[in-house]
C-alpha cells in the first residue's frame, strides 16, 4: 500500500502545532478530497473552508509545501510528482491572518478590496432602456479579470506583501480595479486607478508570484502594469516609479539602449540623486564597475546610437499610431 502523509499546520486560536495524517494513496484524490477524507475519517476537529468543489467559489485555497493552490482544482498526483515526495506540508494561505487551522480571515481583505471602488459607474449615454452594451473586443479586454474567484492564491506568496502589507495591496485588488478601469462602459476609468496609485500601484516588485499562482490564469502583475500605463497616459507622470519607467522609454527612442548614469537622476531628481546616492556612486567608481570617463560621457553625451535606430523609431511610432 502506498501511504501519503499530510503534515497540516494547526491553530486553535492560541496554540500552533503541526499534525500528521497518513492515508492510502488514491489517484482520484484532489488535495481537497484528501482534506475532506481526513476530517471525515480521522479528525473531525480539522478546520478548513470549501464549498463548490468545482473551482468556482474560491474558498478552498491552501498552501502545499509553501505554495498556494486551489485545493479542489489540484490533483493529489500532480503535487506529489511536482515535489517528488509522498509527504506534503499543508498550510493556510500566506499573507492572511489565520483564524483556525487552514481557515483564514477574509474580512480585512474585503475591506481592502473596497478601496478599488468596485462597481461600474456607467457612461452617460447608457440608459436603462438602451442598456450598457459593449463590443466583443471591448469585453475581451476585461474578460480575464472577470474570472477572479477571490481565492487569495495571488496574495499568498506575493513578495511585497510578505515584506510589508502596509503600503501594498493584495494582487487581486489591483485586478479588480483594472477590471473597471479598462471597461469601455465606464464613465470614469481613472476613479479606480487613482485609488490604487495611493495604495502601492508603483511598489510591485515584479516577482511574478501572483501570475504564477492564480488558478484562473489571471495576471495581476499585468493589471498593475496596465493601470500604470493608463495613469501615465492620463498625465500622472510624477513619482519615482513613473519617472523610472519613462527613463527606459526615453532611452529606447533616443539611442536604443539604457543610459545607466542618467537613470538615477531621472528617477529621483538631480538633487536627491546627487546627495542620496553619493556613497553608491563612489563605490561604483572604486570597484571599476564604472569609470569616470564613461560616466562623464554617458551623463553629458549619451550612449552611441544603435545600428538601425531610425528603423526602431519607425516601428515604435507605427505601433503607437495604431
Amino acid at each position: 500500500m502506498r501511504t501519503i502523509t499530510f503534515d497540516i499546520d494547526r491553530f486553535d486560536g492560541s496554540r500552533s502545532w503541526t499534525q500528521s495524517y497518513s492515508f492510502e494513496h488514491d489517484p482520484a484524490h484532489t488535495v481537497l478530497s484528501c482534506l475532506i477524507a481526513i476530517k471525515e475519517k480521522q479528525d473531525p476537529t480539522l478546520n478548513f473552508t470549501a464549498s463548490c468543489r468545482s473551482a468556482i467559489c474560491g474558498s478552498c485555497a491552501v498552501r502545499v509545501n509553501g505554495n498556494a493552490v486551489l485545493a479542489c482544482d489540484t490533483k493529489l498526483d500532480s503535487v506529489l510528482k511536482q515535489w517528488g515526495s509522498d509527504r506534503l506540508q499543508i498550510s493556510p494561505l500566506g499573507n492572511f491572518t489565520v483564524l483556525s487551522d487552514l481557515v483564514v480571515d477574509w474580512s480585512p481583505k474585503i475591506e481592502r478590496l473596497r478601496t478599488a471602488r468596485t462597481g461600474l459607474k456607467a457612461r452617460k449615454e447608457f440608459t436603462a432602456e438602451t442598456g450598457c452594451q459593449q463590443t466583443p473586443a471591448e469585453f475581451a479586454r476585461i474578460q480575464k479579470q472577470w474570472d477572479c474567484i477571490l481565492c487569495g492564491c495571488c496574495a499568498s506568496e506575493c513578495n511585497k506583501l510578505t515584506d510589508d502589507r502596509r503600503d501594498f495591496l493584495e494582487p487581486f485588488v489591483y485586478t479588480h480595479a483594472n477590471r473597471y478601469a479598462q471597461d469601455s462602459r465606464s464613465a470614469e476609468p481613472m476613479l479606480h486607478v487613482r485609488e490604487m496609485l495611493g495604495r502601492g500601484l508603483w511598489k510591485c516588485l515584479h516577482c511574478m508570484e501572483c501570475v504564477t499562482k492564480c488558478p484562473k490564469q489571471i495576471a495581476p502583475a499585468a493589471d498593475i502594469s496596465a493601470m500604470r500605463a493608463l495613469a501615465y497616459a492620463n498625465g500622472v507622470t510624477d513619482g519615482k516609479g513613473p519617472r523610472h519607467a519613462a527613463a527606459f522609454r526615453t532611452d529606447l527612442e533616443n539611442t536604443g539602449r539604457l543610459n545607466e548614469v542618467r537613470l538615477v537622476p531621472r528617477t529621483e531628481g538631480l538633487i536627491d540623486a546627487a546627495t542620496g546616492r553619493m556613497s553608491f556612486t563612489f563605490r561604483m567608481l572604486k570597484s571599476g564597475k564604472l569609470s569616470t570617463r564613461e560616466a562623464t560621457k554617458l551623463y553629458f553625451v549619451d550612449n552611441s546610437p544603435i545600428e538601425g535606430l531610425d528603423g526602431l523609431r519607425k516601428i515604435i511610432r507605427y505601433r503607437r499610431a495604431k
Binding site: 502594469s225 519607467a245 527606459f248 522609454r249 544603435i306 526602431l312 495604431k322
Partner: peptide, 24 residues
C-alpha cells in the same frame, strides 16, 4: 543593432513600444 528589452519597465508607460522593440 539590438535594443533595450524594456527591462520590465517600459511596458508600464508604453506597452506598445515595449512589444515593438522586442519584436524587432
Amino acid at each position: 543593432g539590438w535594443s533595450c528589452c524594456g527591462a520590465s519597465q517600459t511596458q508600464d508607460v508604453d506597452p506598445e513600444a515595449a512589444l515593438a522593440a522586442n519584436a524587432r
